[in-house]
Design a protein around this nucleic acid. Structure first.
Lengths: 418, 418
DNA sequence: TGTTAGCACTCAACCGCGAAGAGTGCTAAC
DNA sequence: GTTAGCACTCTTCGCGGTTGAGTGCTAACA
């Protein structure tokens, strides 16, 4: 595994290369590393290490006389173990942004999915990447809170249903015109009485017969109404996709080729593909990162996706994904998604400076009691099944690494300060 | 006016230049016109005419030794008088497309705005340009067809309203928890009884008092409910914007510059701007063309907009706009919007070959009795106030012109046939 | 044995130049 | 009024040389 393959120094160099590449988008050369990230090594030494890293598949060269560029494998290691999130977590949205988000996140009945959309907007603004929001739990666990049949005109009515997460949906019912509004209202009341508190699947013929009996409407005549209710549920469970900031793709130099950019934008409009893309990653609550060719959609090989699923009060709202070039600012994206998660999960404000991702290495097992729940879940997901790698060695390695990292960061800051 | 300014030959040459430029996107030179559109003139003569046309502002030169390119003024004249729609009207969507559109256009309650959106999709597919659909009449003329207040939980209810165009909207009501569901239902019934058939503005204190009296609920306690109903109306009248095929902008060579393309795409995402853009043009039923700098939005100076407003059964559905480069295929776009209009207006199928725009020159006053209503309205709008130009001279000129055009077209076809 | 200095080599990016080609405007002849 | 001819303009394209960043390799060094 990686631990055997890469010693500490190689990892530090890899990290430096990727950090620098993310920042500058230029292939990075040995001299740059030696100078900018002064690690007490000459460029020649670093050159040798970089050659090794290339041989191992973590780096590659655009052409012979160019610097190195991270490979997908390199990014993978980076997001799993190398990147440090501390630097990036300082950011906060502007007060206006927050106000806007807060006001729009007011829990508004019938507009549940708005929350995830607003969050998606925020994520896109914070990260400067395109974000995709996918709503819809489609898990059939929600219960009916209230329902009503509204007579519209003879033979035509509207079924309205409110679920326990306050989703509202309506559907048209074409019914036997012989059922007059008054009877329809009685049906409505009976249905409400009998169905409220149940999941839709639990509605059975007995219940329908009971309604039939109480209202004097035959079971057959009742069916359109029941169908209408089912239609509502179907609508409530349909998946919706919102894309925010698609134009931002054009800001990234890797898509300065119009043809490429167009390809991406066309994919972005394919709701079915986006649902696949996002849903595939959103098995659990937590962050999932798919790098370059790791995601299967043809045409997104030069893109990475970071997704986060959100639940509020146990109700799954949906998933937000950030789509950007493989060379994306992973720390920032992870931090932004995490920030929004905290906002969305609501209530529980963490003291300033405390964040749920706090360690430089994501797959460090929770050290002290710093929110182990979230940390644990995250580590699992971010590393995408890297549990097997997180042995004692890894732990040790990472800890040392972190110390070195901090030293490195400090010295860089001093440099910049002058 | 133009008639005095331009003789027939100049107009024919201008038409040829624009037709060719629309087709090839290359600045067109005198030799091209002379050869491709054989009009029995040498390139030198055409050169002189083109120099005149440039002096008059209908053409311009990118640089000294290049061909000519139409100016906005040139396009204006073209869409007003020169373009012939016959060639373009032959197209039909594929059977699958039609089936898809038809099935999705099924008048579905509560999803009224879907129709305009589906139509917009179709337009985008037919024209290969970006289309923008703006829904919402916001004219306050709709009447309440049915309404209902649905108790959800103590102190919380849902107002549902159905308007006479079958728009459905709902809104949350936070009311005095002292009002029990049974009373709420009575309020609902009373409101329905009293308000149905009225416009919202017509709801007055007398009516509210009547409800209060019939239900025993105080006027003050009733107000949240009324507010909820108003909220519904507000939602129903809110304008929605759908953009379809934004990526298509990137196919046009004039936007091969990524910066430019990004600017456009960002504008496309600005709903407020798009509403302004489309609504400004949609004063009447009919087509409106805005060319280049004619539309006021900064950044769309190199774009043209063609909009068409649609009503079904007297209810204004919304407006569809096509946004593309100034060098857009105007005949095709006009034809597509007109085609969709016929579909959307529904029912009345015209015999094959008969179309509501049938003349080569749009501002010809209706000749025989070929659907003068539609034609008349269209001419007014398309020419954007060109009525004053449509005198006897114009008529004469145009008629001759058309004959010449047909000859020209025929000979071109023969050429291509071999 | 690991590290470093030095050097030759590679290759993309840039620049300037000249040739090619399309198209014009002007003039003189028809 | 129309057209042929010609000189002129200006973009586009391809070519070759230069520059500079970065590499790999080798030999010396600690």
């Amino acid at each position: 595994m990686e631990q055997d393959e890469l010693d500490l120094r190689k990892m530090l160099i890899l990290k430096a290369v990727i950090d620098d590449y993310i920042e500058t988008r230029e292939p990075v050369g040995s001299r740059t590393i030696a100078k900018k990230y002064d690690m007490g090594l000459s460029s020649a030494t670093i050159r040798n290490e970089m050659a090794d890293l290339e041989e191992l598949g973590y780096l590659s060269q655009p052409h012979t006389s160019a610097g190195r560029v991270p490979s997908d494998k390199g990014y993978r290691l980076y997001v799993d173990k190398l990147m440090n999130l501390e630097e990036k977590l300082g950011f906060e949205p502007t007060p206006e942004e927050l106000e806007d988000v807060k006001s729009r996140m007011q829990h508004e009945i019938g507009e549940m999915s708005d929350q995830i959309r607003v969050a998606s907007e925020l994520v896109s603004r914070l990260t400067e990447y395109t974000s995709i929001a996918v709503t819809g739990a489609a898990d059939g666990t929600r219960r009916i809170k209230a329902l009503q049949v509204v007579p519209v005109e003879p033979g035509k009515a509207l079924a309205v249903i409110v679920l326990d997460d306050d989703t509202v949906r309506n559907a048209v019912i074409q019914h036997d015109p012989a059922i007059v509004p008054e009877v329809l209202m009685k049906v409505s009341t009976q249905c409400n009485l009998l169905f409220a508190g149940h999941r839709v699947e639990e509605i059975n013929l007995n219940m329908i017969d009971a309604v039939s009996e109480a209202t004097g409407v035959s079971r057959a005549a009742l069916m359109p109404v029941i169908d209408g209710l089912f239609e509502c549920i179907k609508k409530a469970e349909s998946t919706e996709v919102y894309t925010e900031g698609a134009a931002k793709f054009l800001s990234h130099p890797e898509f300065s080729d119009v043809g490429k950019a167009r390809g991406i934008l066309e994919l972005l409009n394919r709701d079915d593909l986006m649902i696949d893309l996002i849903k595939e990653c959103s098995t659990a609550d937590g962050l999932v990162i798919r790098i370059g060719s790791e995601n299967k959609i043809e045409g997104l090989n030069e893109c990475s996706v970071v997704t986060a699923s959100y639940s509020v009060n146990g109700v799954k709202l949906g998933t937000i994904g950030v789509l950007g070039p493989t060379r994306m600012d992973y720390p920032r994206v992870v931090a932004a998604l995490e920030y929004v998660r905290r906002r969305l999960t609501g209530g529980r404000e963490l003291p300033a400076g405390t964040v749920s991702i706090q360690k430089g290495m994501l797959n460090l097992e929770g050290e002290a009691g710093t929110e182990p729940g979230i940390d644990g879940a995250k580590a699992d997901n971010v590393t995408g099944g890297a549990k097997d790698n997180a042995g004692v060695d890894a732990d040790n390695l990472a800890r040392t690494d972190k110390v070195r990292n901090e030293g490195l960061l400090r010295s860089r800051k001093q440099e910049e300060g002058q």
